[in-house]
Simulated scan of single mutants.
Amino acid sequence: MNRLLVPALLTALVVGVAAPSSSDDMGEAARAGQWQLGALRLPEAWRMSRGAGVVVAVLDTGVNSRHPDLAGAVLPGPDLTGATRGPWGQHGTAMASLIAGRGHGDGRGLIGVAPAAEVLSVRVTLENGDPLREQRRSGGGDALAKGIRYAADHGADVISMSLGGGSGSWEGSAPEEESVQYAIGKGAVLVASSGNDGDAGNRKNFPAAYPGVIAVGAVDRALQVARFSNRQDYLSVVAPGTEIVTADGADSYVVGDGTSSAAALVAGIAALIKAAHPEMSPYHVRRAIELGTRKRPADGYSRAYGHGVANALLALRAADRLAAPASAAPTPGAYFGEGPPPPSRLPVVAGMLTLVVALSARVIVRHRRRGRDSA
């Protein structure tokens, strides 16, 4: 089924708080506003992995590689929307900066969750403000399904989809679901935003609801679920999704709320895990993210929090445990003679005493028998 895909960024406000006097000042303000770095324990996680060697496909409105925080991080991909004009790349650039932003200069600009990873830009939807969205369906022919397959066929380790719903269709589509399973079969980890109508219709949102996709909701600075975050039984985890600073255009920044940002951050965590454990299956990457959470619900799961608040450091530790062999191979000790010494001499002594008693009993019996025969 063809349908318009709606990027899940809820609001956007220009960062120019206190009117920075230069781009350097703006970059410093952007870095200072990244409250998610501490919430996800990223400085500690980066000692274990920074996402090197991993490709994260950003299926969105396109990624602007000219933003200074994304220099050298963007791999060009196709435009599957069929649109030749209109706004381009704002939302996709924002999400890419959260995943693989590299900053610029000393302490300026945005740092993504996986700053050593690369992002593959695949345009599958139009911007919220694009008038063509009111006139036609994005792509005209399963753009998202095609984008997922393209990403899987072109080396994507992780596929990030901060989008969903649209055109009144919320039941998903067969081509999309088939493409999801195709990508998982090729080893890709798929992540999607849960949706932003949690305080309204709270509808089932695709692609988040497809089996195998890591569906992500949003929390605020207090790690409380944001009112707009969709609450569904397929929710996997939640992550920071309010007052999130992202890249915008070629050299500016915005602050926004939405499950879009939360999904991009979790896609970055998946990239950290894949860099540390390249052969780990999508299922085990998902389990590591779910096991490595904070603020876990009392019953272990809820429709609001999923398995809890995502945490990069704890997820990496969980991945290490999942990747460890079931039983460690025995290591040689200090004894290298004909065989290992017995763990204790007591069983040996007891056995020898038993053997002596048994032999003595046999000698006595034999002597008695001989006595009777000779009598």
Rank of each mutant, 00 (worst) to 15 (best):
P131R: 09
L132M: 12
R133L: 11
R133V: 11
R133S: 11
E134L: 15
E134F: 12
Q135R: 15
Q135T: 13
Q135W: 12
R136V: 14
R137F: 04
S138W: 04
S138A: 13
S138L: 00
S138V: 01
G139Q: 02
G139E: 05
G139C: 08
G139I: 02
G140R: 04
G140F: 04
G141R: 03
G141Q: 07
D142S: 05
D142H: 13
D142K: 02
D142L: 11
A143M: 03
A143G: 04
A143N: 02
L144P: 00
L144Q: 01
A145N: 01
K146V: 01
K146N: 03
K146R: 11
K146Y: 01
I148W: 06
I148G: 03
I148K: 02
R149G: 04
R149N: 02
R149L: 05
Y150C: 00
Y150D: 02
Y150T: 06
Y150R: 01
A151N: 08
A151Q: 05
A152I: 05
A152R: 04
A152K: 00
D153Y: 07
D153Q: 07
H154Y: 06
H154P: 05
G155W: 01
G155R: 01
G155D: 06
G155L: 06
G155N: 06
G155Q: 05
G155E: 01
A156F: 03
A156H: 07
D157N: 12
D157G: 14
V158R: 07
V158M: 10
I159C: 10
S160Q: 10
S160V: 02
S160R: 05
S160P: 08
M161H: 13
M161K: 09
S162E: 09
L163T: 06
L163P: 08
G164T: 07
G164K: 12
G165L: 06
G165D: 02
G165W: 00
G165K: 00
G165E: 04
G166A: 06
G166T: 07
S167T: 13
S169L: 10
W170E: 13
W170D: 12
E171A: 03
G172D: 11
G172P: 09
S173Q: 12
S173A: 15
S173M: 14
S173W: 08
S173C: 15
S173L: 12
A174V: 15
A174G: 15
A174W: 14
A174Y: 13
A174T: 15
P175T: 15
P175Y: 14
P175A: 13
P175G: 15
E176S: 12
E176C: 15
E176Y: 12
E178Y: 10
E178R: 14
S179I: 12
S179L: 09
V180W: 06
V180Q: 10
V180E: 09
Q181T: 08
Q181L: 03
Y182L: 02
A183R: 02
A183M: 02
A183W: 02
G185Y: 03
G185H: 04
G185F: 03
G185R: 10
G185P: 01
K186H: 00
K186E: 00
G187P: 11
G187F: 07
A188Y: 04
A188K: 07
A188F: 05
V189D: 00
V189T: 07
V189Q: 06
L190Y: 06
L190W: 09
L190I: 13
L190S: 03
V191T: 08
A192S: 12
S193N: 10
S193K: 12
S194T: 13
G195S: 11
G195L: 05
G195K: 00
G195Q: 10
